[in-house]
Design a protein around this nucleic acid. Structure first.
Length: 423
RNA sequence: GUGAGCGUAGCUCAGUUGGCAGAGCUCUGGAUUGUGGCUCCAGCGGCCGGGGGUUCAAGUCCCCUCGCUCACCCCA
């Protein structure tokens, strides 16, 4: 059972027809809701120069440090399979001078991302995200609207989730805060875990992510960024909260929720679900006013979020999962070669008129074809035998109530038209 | 990278102190010559993940290995 040719790579998977309807439901809903908020789709390449992610995500992050799928191509360039899409979207925004008209640019994307991590519940090496980016404004209402949109998508799908928010300051208030944090950490560090000591040096804010029990008392007593915001950041955060409240959205402020990089500023948020096990984040996002400049573009105030489709599908309530099954409007059953040809002709005509038809090619007997029609949940079976062929009238049978009657093809079309099929 | 649990039919899983590899579902055929579902009958389907060892005898015990799953780190 371990043939390397007939096995997928670890952390990847096939999404089979039996479950794909749930994905389509989620994707369709997301597209509809995002477009209601004025977001337009963008599709960027799945591969990018490694440097884009190294700079756009940050050298100190786990993603860049150990999780990227990176290879050297035939032209000796270092290429990386995208571990997330924000850097690509900002790159495309700069490259295509989408900032030219001024104002707010709203974009969304759907697609696979890649991170070389060990598989866990809700964690894959190839996973899928739907995300949105709003570029060109620092207005707190933009933050609130984006959060509202993400929550509404989940709510409309019947998914229960909780919003966690924070503000991580900006280039004015963060450096003095970090200095204070480091000096307080210095005294406590000897009692803390190895990871904390490492993080204190490389990416200080990250010590707040620590989950080691013995570190918690230390962390709880550290000054929080939330209490050390400058006036502008404090006002911005208050604005976001006010707009959330006006939208009737409840939230929890989590001072420990941080995004560690310099160009991540102000709003940071996460949407979590209790049903996901250890990886409980369904969506995460934040503001990144400095990213465009880091990538060589103009200053652009922006924020975005990404939602994990795999995780969303996983926690989709059962009742959201059915309803979508494909079924043929007409299953064409035939007996004999001339009837087989006639079946093909009728099916072609019906399909061109927008109906879904199915023909069994096994050349089995009528019984077997009826059985297949039933298994496919066909709404009708059109029986084409020698009688029908010679008279030009066919037997149509409605499987739900077993009623059957004779029709000509024009009569069949009239009948089907009365059923109000959605095409 | 570290730790734990699990690998038996296409799927979900039984398999006792080591003693002829099983069930349900699916699939195929029949009961029913050109009529599905429900029922009944029959059938197909296995390197028990792989390799080595112990034993008269291993799905079962031991060692190695591969795979999967969950957890740690971190994140979607």
């Amino acid at each position: 059972m371990d043939d390397t040719v007939t096995s997928n790579l670890p952390g990847t998977r096939d999404l089979l027809p039996g479950e794909i309807d749930r994905w389509q439901l989620v994707e369709d809903r997301a597209r509809r809701i995002f477009s209601q908020y004025g977001f337009l789709e963008i599709r960027t390449p799945i591969i990018e120069p490694t440097e884009l992610f190294a700079r756009g995500i940050g050298e100190d992050t786990d993603i860049v440090g150990k999780e990227m799928y990176t290879f050297v191509d035939q032209s000796n360039r270092s290429i990386t399979l995208r571990p997330e899409a924000t850097a690509s979207v900002v790159r495309a925004y700069i490259q295509n001078t989408m900032y030219r008209g001024g104002g707010l640019t709203k974009l969304y994307y759907i697609g696979p991302m890649f991170r070389h991590e060990k598989k866990q519940k809700g964690r894959w090496r190839q996973f899928y995200q739907i995300g949105a980016e709003a570029l060109g404004s620092d207005h707190p209402a933009v933050d609130a609207e984006m959060i509202e949109m993400a929550l509404w998508l989940l709510e409309s799908l019947g998914v229960k989730a909780k919003l966690l928010i924070n503000s991580v300051g900006c280039s004015n208030c963060r450096p003095p805060y970090l200095e204070r944090l480091r000096s307080e950490l210095e005294q406590r560090l000897p009692g803390m875990c190895e990871d904390c000591r490492r993080r204190a040096a490389t990416n200080t804010l990250r010590v707040f992510d620590c989950k080691v029990e013995s570190c918690q008392p230390f962390i709880d007593r550290l000054p929080s960024i939330t209490d050390n915001l400058c006036a502008e950041c404090g006002n911005h955060f208050a604005g976001v909260r006010r707009h959330l409240e006006q939208a009737g959205i409840s939230y929890e402020i989590v001072p420990r929720l941080v995004r560690g990089l310099d160009y991540y500023v102000r709003t940071a948020f996460e949407i979590v679900s209790g049903e996901l096990g250890s990886q409980n984040a369904v969506a995460g996002g934040g503001r990144y006013n400095g990213l465009s400049e880091v990538l060589g573009g103009p200053p652009v105030q922006a924020l975005g979020f990404a939602m994990g489709l795999d995780r969303l599908v996983m926690i989709l309530p059962e009742e959201q999962r059915a309803d979508f099954k494909w079924r043929p409007d007409v299953f064409l059953a035939y007996m004999g070669e001339p009837a087989f040809e006639k079946a093909g002709e009728i099916a072609r005509e019906l399909r061109h008129r927008g109906y879904s038809c199915y023909i069994d090619f096994s050349e089995g007997r009528l019984k077997g074809q009826m059985r297949l029609a039933n298994k496919l949940n066909a709404e009708h079976v059109l029986i084409i035998g020698e009688d029908e062929l010679s008279r030009g009238k066919y037997t149509i049978k409605r499987l739900a109530d077993s009623r059957q009657w004779e029709v000509t093809i024009p009569e069949l079309q009239d009948y089907l038209a009365t059923l109000n099929r959605s095409i």
